[in-house]
Design a binder for these strands. Structure first.
Lengths: 150, 150
DNA sequence: ATAATTTAAATTGTGCACAACTTAATTGTT
DNA sequence: AACAATTAAGTTGTGCACAATTTAAATTAT
C-alpha cells in the first residue's frame, strides 16, 4: 500500500487527472452540440428517462440542486429541455426534452464511438477498466455504509 | 466496445463519479488541516519540490495560472506558503513553504494511510488500479501526440 | 541595437460542485 | 384537524477549472 505523500503515488490524484484529461477530450466533440460535459451527462439521462424529476436526476449523477438548478436553467435557455411541476407532488420539478433536445440525440449518437476511437482501446481492456472503476465506487459506498452503522 | 449512449456504460462517467466520490472522502480528512483537495495537491508538490515555480507546479497538476494564481493567494493567506519573483527570470513566480507549511507535512503524513484504510484495498489491487489509470492517461497523451503530428 | 516573437503570470468571465440556508409542499403524529 | 417533521428545489457563497485576454519580461531575428 502506498503510504507516502508522493503526488504520483496517490490513487486520488491519478483518478483526478485521468478524469480531467478525458473530459478535456470531450470538449471539442461536444462544442458543436453546444453542450458542456456536465450538460451532456444530463442529456444522456434524459435520453434514457424523459420526464425525470430533478431529485432522481441528481441521484443518478451525484449532483445536488445547487448544481442542477442553474444547469437546467441553461439547458432551457438553449432550448433542449423544459421543466414543470409534477402533478402528483407539487414539490417536484420534472424535466422534459424538447423537440430539439430529442433531435440532438441523433447528432450525439456517435460521440461514444469517437471517444473510444481516440482512446484507441480494445473491448477487453475497456471492460476491465469499467470493472475497476465500479469496484472503486463499491469500496467507497461500502465505507459509507460502515460509517452509517456506527 | 460500448458505443451506446447509456450513461452507466460511459467510461468518462465512471471516472468522473469515482473521482468526485473519492474527493468527497478526503474532505473531512483535510478539513482539520484547513485545506481543500486542490490545495492539498499543491502542498504535496511543495513538500516534494519546495521553491517550485508556478509554471512547473501547473504542469505537474495539469492546472493553469487561472486556477493556480488565486489558489496560491489563498494558501498565502492561510500562511502555508509564500511567493516571490525568480531572480534569474523576472517573469517566473516561485512558491515557498513557510514554517507552518513545513510543519503541516507531519500532520498530513497519515492522510494516505487513512484513505487507503477507508478504501479497504489490498496492495496488489492498488498497484493494478494505479497502472490502469496511468494507462488511460498514456492513451490520452498518445492521442494528443497523434493529433499534433497531423 | 531594435523590433518581433515567445513565454510567464495575472485577470476576467463562465460554468460547475458543494455546503448551508430558505421556502414551500407533503407526510406523520397526536 | 392541527402541529411537527420531513422532503424537494432554489438561493447564496466559496472555491475550483479553464478559455481568452492583458501585461511584462525574456528570447530571437533582423
Amino acid at each position: 500500500m502506498e503510504r507516502s505523500l508522493r503526488l504520483e503515488h496517490q490513487i486520488c490524484f491519478q483518478l483526478y487527472t485521468a478524469s480531467k484529461e478525458l473530459t478535456r477530450l470531450y470538449r471539442p466533440i461536444l462544442a458543436p452540440l453546444n453542450l458542456t460535459y456536465s450538460q451532456y451527462l444530463v442529456m444522456l439521462v434524459l435520453w434514457e428517462e424523459d420526464g425525470i424529476d430533478l431529485r432522481r436526476l441528481g441521484s443518478r449523477l451525484t449532483l445536488d440542486s445547487g448544481t442542477l438548478s442553474p444547469l437546467i436553467k441553461r439547458l432551457i435557455q438553449i432550448g433542449y429541455v423544459e421543466k414543470s411541476r409534477a402533478i402528483d407532488d407539487e414539490r417536484k420539478i420534472v424535466v422534459y426534452l424538447t423537440e430539439r433536445g430529442n433531435t440532438l440525440r441523433e447528432q450525439a449518437s456517435d460521440v461514444p464511438l469517437q471517444v473510444s476511437g481516440m482512446l484507441n482501446i480494445d473491448e477487453a481492456t475497456y471492460v476491465a477498466y469499467m470493472e475497476m472503476l465500479t469496484d472503486i465506487k463499491t469500496r467507497l459506498h461500502d465505507f459509507g455504509e460502515r460509517q452509517r452503522e456506527q
